[in-house]
């Protein structure tokens, strides 16, 4: 098993939007910010597990759809008064394709 796994094309993810990659380790949300930067986070809000992939993307942040926590796409950390982290997953773009690490996809979250 190679270390980086191809999960789709850059164009599959809408600008200011997100797509889900279902994996044995749990859902992963892949986001595309307004500037085209791609990010991958665990699709679980550190608050009560809300699916971040369903949130609104703005700047390098996403607002959780359940109770409006704002999560940084850069770090996965909750912003402002809230505390917690939706772990960031290493992501690489190569030739228009999005690659995630195998370990992130396969390792079950503890």
């Amino acid at each position: 098993m190679s270390e980086w796994i191809d999960v789709g094309t850059v164009d599959d993810v809408p600008l200011l939007g997100s797509r889900v990659v279902q994996a044995p380790s749990g859902d992963i949300a892949v986001f595309k910010a307004a500037d085209g930067t791609l990010f991958a986070l665990r699709d679980r809000c550190p608050h009560k597990g809300g699916p971040l992939s369903q949130g609104i993307v703005h700047g390098h942040s996403v607002t959780c759809p359940l109770h409006n926590w704002v999560i940084s796409l850069d770090s996965g950390e909750a912003q402002g008064a809230d505390q917690g982290c939706a772990h960031r997953i290493p992501l690489r773009v190569e030739g228009g394709r999005i690659l995630l690490t195998a370990s992130a996809l396969m390792a079950r979250a503890a």
Binding site: V7, D12, V20, V21, Q22, A23, V30, L105
Partner: peptide
């Protein structure tokens, strides 16, 4: 349609 479909699914592969 993209809203309702995952981009990729590796759970079946496993």
């Amino acid at each position: 349609a993209h809203e309702f479909r995952p981009m990729a699914n590796f759970t079946l592969a496993e």
